[in-house]
Amino acid sequence: MDIHSFRKDYKSPILRKEFLDPDPIKQFESWFMEACEANIREPNAMSLATVSPEGKPSIRTVLLKIFDHRGFVFFTNYNSRKARHISHNAQVSLLFPWIPLERQVAITGTAARISTVESARYFATRPRESQLGAWISNQSAPLSSRDILMLQLEKAKQRFQKGEIPLPDFWGGYRVEPETIEFWQGRTSRLHDRFLYSKTDKNSWSITRLMP
């Protein structure tokens, strides 16, 4: 298959430093809202990159569920591959690929578990089927047949048929505290606009324009 001719010239308006909010979280919120208003499917979908103890990178898509000035939160099984990687090396990267808007946001930072109280608060908002799914999936472990998974689901339905489903002790959230946040906007002739926010102290950020 010849993909050499797959080409699109981005035509977004120019992005200047003076257009950016000095606070990268507020800037992210602005772009995130624009992604939502543009009806981009799963605008909170983000790629999460981690590194194994052997130094092998791994990437997958997870969903952003909370963001504020403390960081960006996603949820997972604490026995999953990503969780095992984070326990060894908490340095991770996130990427929001809002291609229909000709934009990307790339984040680097440190991941750490959020409190059980915060995880339980979010878990209570999940649909019941999703709560059951968290209980039955030993995430990233080998599975010989989907039939086994569905059998486990039926057992979980029986186990939790009455009352609320509690938070599993092996499931919860991670917060990525950002150290850098890059805002990328596509421009014509591949001369894209890129601005990198770098944390200088607890409450301050520097902004640097990067070459395309």
Rank of each mutant, 00 (worst) to 15 (best):
I114N: 10
I148F: 09
T110W: 02
G133K: 06
E102P: 02
G133I: 08
A124T: 12
W184V: 05
I148A: 09
Q104V: 03
I107K: 04
Q131D: 04
E129K: 13
K162Y: 11
D169C: 07
T125A: 01
S140P: 05
E179M: 10
F160H: 01
E102Y: 13
K155E: 15
I136T: 08
E129H: 10
G172K: 10
I165G: 05
E182M: 02
A106T: 13
E182H: 00
T110C: 04
E129L: 10
P168S: 02
Y174K: 02
Q185T: 12
D147R: 09
Q185A: 06
R128M: 06
T180Y: 00
G186N: 06
S130N: 14
L151R: 11
Q185S: 15
T188K: 14
T108Q: 14
Y122T: 08
D169K: 13
D169P: 01
D169G: 07
A156I: 01
I114T: 14
L153A: 12
P178L: 07
E179L: 08
I114R: 12
Y174C: 00
G109W: 03
I181Q: 01
Q158H: 11
R128L: 11
L153T: 13
E177N: 11
W135T: 03
A134K: 03
K157V: 06
F123Q: 07
R190N: 13
Y174T: 06
A124I: 02
W171I: 03
S189R: 13
S145D: 15
G133Q: 09
G109F: 06
L101T: 07
A112K: 15
V105R: 05
G133D: 10
A156P: 04
P178G: 08
T110N: 09
A156N: 05
E154C: 00
E182W: 02
T125H: 05
A134R: 02
P127H: 04
K157I: 08
P127F: 03
E102M: 13
T125G: 05
P178D: 00
G172I: 12
I136N: 00
L151N: 11
A141G: 01
G186T: 11
A106I: 14
E118H: 10
S145C: 07
P166D: 06
M150L: 14
I136H: 01
E102C: 10
R103N: 07
Y122A: 08
Q139H: 13
P178A: 14
E179G: 03
M150Q: 15
A156W: 02
G163S: 11
E154Q: 15
N138P: 03
S145H: 14
T180G: 04
R190F: 09
Y122S: 09
S119C: 04
P127E: 09
S145T: 12
P166M: 03
A141D: 10
E129P: 02
L132Y: 09
G172C: 05
A141V: 03
R190C: 02
I148S: 04
R159L: 15
R103P: 06
V117Q: 15
T180N: 04
N138A: 14
D147P: 00
R190M: 12
G172E: 01
E118K: 11
M150K: 14
K155D: 13
E179K: 14
Y122H: 15
K157G: 07
I165S: 05
R113N: 10
T108N: 14
G133T: 02
E164C: 05
T125C: 04
S115A: 05
Q131I: 01
V176E: 03
S119D: 07
